[in-house]
Amino acid sequence: MKTFRRVYSKESLAELAALTNIQKTRVFRILNGADLKWKEAEVLNQLIKKKFGSNFSDFFYDFVLGKSKPSDDKKINSREMEKRNLSYFYFLTEDRK
């Protein structure tokens, strides 16, 4: 969600609702931390993809949706999560020539 919000930072709540085809109140709840449904996550992912092209890395998406099984070790999880966050941020901000 953070990524989505960063990518679509200028859009208002109403615009986001129209963009995602999700009800405004639901968008508000999602933005405030409500768990995403699978379909909603897919819509958001598609919108991020749309903005960044087809070479969007799916690994972050997979991880967020729990497709990849995180380890039971909480410390490794948090480090792994940090790494993925940083990698993803790098992907979003790297210079494209």
């Binding site: 940090e82 940083l86 941020f89 790098y90 901000t93 790297e94 210079d95």
Partner: peptide
């Protein structure tokens, strides 16, 4: 070998 935005992100971290 990083750009400014990324360096600022590392600083924030």
């Amino acid at each position: 070998s990083f750009n400014k935005k990324f360096i600022l992100k590392i600083i924030e971290n």
